[in-house]
Simulated scan of single mutants.
Amino acid sequence: MAETSTGTGTTGRNQPLGDTELRLMQRLAQQITATDLELVNSDATYGELAWNWGRAHRAESGSWRHRLWFDGTDGTDRTDLIAWAWAALPREVPRADGTVRDYTDAYLTYQIHPDHNTLIDDVIGWYEQTAAGVRRTLVTQAADQVAQARWAAHGYTPESDSTDDSTSDSSADDGDWTQLNTRDLEDIETPDLPDGFAFTTAADAGPGATVRAHLAAWPASTMTDDAYQGLLQAPGYRPDLHLLIQAPDGTMAASAVMWLDPANATVEFEPVGTHPGFRRLGLGRALVLHGLHTARAAGASHATVACLGAPAHPKARGLYYSVGFRYFSRDVLLAKAAVQ
């Protein structure tokens, strides 16, 4: 077995991360989901990959670098991807309101097939070279002890309050780490909407209303009309599985994107949010329950959703627990200062 690679590093012409490469990365995520879900990087799930690529590739791809590792003698058999790394370098990204979001750190998303975990040092070395001179950040899974040990050996340390302690109930832990929650799709409660509210989809509401719904829930988002057009190109995105709740006055009051992974009969919710003017009405809960029913009808038998896991951030976790999700795994935030 010889490992070959393609992509970009610090030399050579920058080849964009396109949908062909993304589909290969999604396939690896599907393979690991089927056997080792606890090792799937929280930013490297089938749906999260499509979400992050789709909404950002038009505006941000110039700051992206990637590398793919294949199990083959000449790198031409691209069905055998065994590892990949995707780095976002410091950049400025315009928001829909005319402001700019300034990213000053580099951020790495990566995935390695468990049978090839010795490639972790190759991934680390590539990231060190690609993002030299800036603060470097990433997440790894708490269950991936091999990866955590190797990142530590290269000088990467956990961010504050991001070490693995899933039993902690200290409200002082306000870190930004996330946890993965799962449930099966048996015995789903019937959703209950307030009078005058109705379920709809992005397919029926159209792009403009869909973008406004997202921005209402996440005002600091970099979602724009153009970004949504990019999302429509993302492998796995289905407007009929982008669920919305319409208020009596016509406002889109809540939204949830669902990503159906047919290979594993799973559905992932990412993201879920409610308009601030319509919170505390049970809309988020009703939308997730409606989504579970919709996913089951589409062929899914299992669902996942990620949320902030620190005890100081209980709202989303409480919502998902209330509809039957339970903790499964979590990530660990790692960083290395630019001077190192």
Results as ranks from 00 to 15, higher is better:
265 A>G: 04
215 L>C: 11
8 T>S: 14
337 A>P: 00
237 Y>L: 07
298 A>R: 06
56 A>G: 01
154 H>P: 00
112 I>P: 00
9 G>M: 13
183 R>T: 15
6 T>R: 10
137 T>N: 02
123 V>Y: 04
99 T>Y: 10
247 A>S: 05
323 V>Q: 01
8 T>A: 14
180 L>Y: 13
212 R>S: 14
9 G>R: 09
173 D>V: 09
38 E>V: 12
339 V>E: 14
101 R>Y: 07
303 A>K: 08
11 T>Y: 02
205 A>R: 09
129 Q>F: 00
197 F>Q: 11
274 T>G: 02
244 L>R: 03
187 D>H: 15
204 D>T: 09
69 W>H: 08
42 S>K: 05
104 T>R: 12
21 E>Q: 15
319 L>M: 15
332 V>A: 10
90 P>N: 03
198 A>C: 08
50 A>C: 03
271 P>A: 13
135 R>S: 01
20 T>R: 11
223 M>C: 04
231 L>G: 00
156 Y>Q: 04
115 D>I: 06
339 V>S: 15
73 T>I: 05
52 N>H: 12
62 G>T: 14
97 D>R: 04
328 F>D: 03
8 T>E: 02
326 R>F: 09
7 G>K: 04
211 V>M: 10
320 Y>L: 10
165 D>Y: 07
145 Q>G: 03
312 A>T: 06
82 I>K: 02
187 D>T: 12
321 Y>S: 07
175 G>R: 12
74 D>C: 02
172 A>M: 11
217 A>Y: 08
98 G>N: 05
168 S>H: 05
64 W>E: 13
263 A>M: 14
77 D>H: 10
129 Q>M: 01
246 Q>N: 04
57 H>V: 03
163 T>W: 14
147 A>S: 06
144 D>I: 05
212 R>H: 11
199 F>D: 06
101 R>T: 12
69 W>K: 01
43 D>K: 11
82 I>L: 03
163 T>R: 11
246 Q>C: 07
285 R>E: 15
58 R>P: 00
69 W>M: 08
330 R>H: 09
123 V>E: 03
97 D>H: 06
130 T>V: 03
72 G>E: 13
276 P>M: 11
333 L>I: 11
146 V>S: 02
51 W>K: 09
24 L>P: 00
46 Y>D: 06
180 L>A: 07
67 R>V: 12
33 T>A: 14
71 D>T: 05
17 L>D: 00
25 M>L: 15
214 H>A: 09
218 W>C: 12
244 L>D: 02
240 D>C: 03
99 T>D: 08
254 A>S: 14
137 T>G: 00
64 W>R: 07
74 D>Q: 13
172 A>I: 12
72 G>V: 06
45 T>R: 10
145 Q>M: 05
198 A>L: 08
306 A>L: 07
138 L>S: 04
161 D>P: 00
92 E>Y: 02
283 L>Y: 03
322 S>R: 05
179 Q>G: 15
258 M>V: 03
270 E>K: 05
51 W>M: 10
324 G>K: 07
8 T>R: 06
282 G>M: 10
239 P>R: 09
267 V>W: 12
39 L>P: 01
279 R>T: 13
25 M>W: 10
276 P>V: 07
185 L>H: 13
297 A>V: 06
3 E>T: 05
160 S>Y: 09
134 V>K: 04
65 R>H: 07
248 P>I: 07
132 A>H: 08
12 G>W: 05
292 L>P: 00
